[in-house]
Design a protein around this nucleic acid. Structure first.
Lengths: 241, 241
DNA sequence: AACGCGAGGTGTACGGCGTACACCTTCGAC
DNA sequence: GTCGAAGGTGTACGCCGTACACCTCGCGTT
């Protein structure tokens, strides 16, 4: 038995929560490369295989760690309405702060092969901010893609790997689950079409989304340039104006 | 000896180029996880350790693979001048196409602990496009940060890990190397300050850069929203206007 | 033609990884 | 008090990157 000495009484039992918290702490100290099932088990005074009673495998461990980090992001206001822009800005910055506390987190995020429930919850909250401000479903969809690089720290389509289910029953079940827990995500997914005639779940044109975000940046830069923007207040404190 | 049979004559000698090309091909087929020194050696009909005569270790192999992929991006126009926005747009999209041909590439990129020469060449070219259009060094610097998520596919500061050298001689040597090969990168690095009084190599405020790019997206979205933008041409074909 | 020397390919081995599988221990419900 | 299952253990396997000593060519020199 590893770590036989425990000052008073028995070593506390392992739980999924203890495993995840210790994994986060270990990754904070040693980085993602320093996190192995063996080093983690050592820290918990336990044999490596004991972890597998609480997480299916290392991928599931990373899923759980991501979940733990995202739980640190404070909840957004329910219905910001007209203040949607400020609310969205605050939420992105809140997310950034949480991810900055755990430098390994964005690398863990991007290796998730599909969006986890915690990530869907996070997206749902952001989508509701924009929608509550009256931004159209279509524009919300594109803005969300553009914001993706700010929220998650990377650009590639989350969960783009692996073919979606083709069985109609499976699709229906997935849609039902979405409708119950992530209605804004579902609406956004259905708003991907670029033409009102072909809108219905037409899938998402990645090239369009990419160019949309790119043009926001370039057009914004051009406008600032034309106005002789300077960082010390030529136009405004930020990029606004 | 692995793969003893070779139709005519001897097996051709290994070169760094053959190693890199085969590594790229293997990663294209099997993904980055399917690329190991052993599987790569197998494909080349060689024993794993033979690779180490041509690449220092696996990290250097990945450096070389990134270099190979970036070499596929067509060169930009020399001095686009007033057409800087179109040139920048084209170059980002060219880069995207190259990275899309190698889905593993953006993940390889983001694990580089510091910008490689090939990445610096790439940045240099983009910076020159903006500067040739008369965009100020400061605005170029911030726009480059904002574009980073489009160019590289991720947001985090490239090469942010590890403390910079503190020895004055080392700094001077690095600056001299920069000035020779990447003058625009050097200029941009020196343009990070946000106040003319404290500009000289004051380092780069990551939070400012993040907020700058975030506000470009949010302000642009707000403007489109106010104009009742629709994706099928309400305002313009892209996000422009 | 003979030689030798260095670049390039080989073979063996080590320590680390994730985890399958069989086993044992412990504890709560009855 | 007993029993069953949940939780922790031990062993083992097949991967991984790569250090180190060795062998084998092919070429420049003589």
């Amino acid at each position: 038995m590893p770590e036989p000495e425990h000052p008073g009484g028995r070593r506390p039992r392992l739980t999924r929560e203890r495993v995840l918290d210790e994994a986060v702490a270990l990754a904070d100290e040693a980085g993602l490369d320093g996190l192995s099932m063996r080093t983690l088990a050592d820290r918990l005074g336990v044999v490596p295989m004991a972890l597998y009673k609480h997480v299916r495998d290392k991928e599931a461990l990373l899923d759980g760690m991501v979940e733990t980090v995202l739980a640190e992001v404070p909840p957004p206001p329910e219905e910001p309405g007209a203040a949607w822009k400020a609310a969205a800005r605050a939420r992105v910055l809140d997310t950034r702060r949480a991810l900055q506390r755990h430098p390994w987190a964005w690398r863990a995020l991007e290796t998730r092969p599909a969006p986890t429930p915690a990530m869907l919850d996070h997206m749902e909250a952001m989508l509701r901010i924009l929608r509550s401000g009256g931004v159209s479903p279509q524009l919300t969809h594109h803005a969300m893609h553009a914001l993706g690089s700010r929220i998650w720290g990377f650009t590639q389509e989350v969960g783009a790997s692996g073919p979606p289910p083709t069985d109609p029953d499976e699709i229906a079940a997935a849609m039902a689950a979405m409708a119950a827990r992530w209605p804004a995500v579902l609406e956004s997914a259905m708003s991907a079409g670029h033409d009102p005639d072909t809108t219905v779940g037409a899938g998402c044109d990645d090239d369009f989304e990419f160019a949309f975000a790119l043009d926001l940046i370039l057009d914004g830069t051009e406008r600032l340039d034309e106005r002789g923007w300077t960082p010390w207040g030529g136009v405004s404190a930020g990029a606004g104006g």
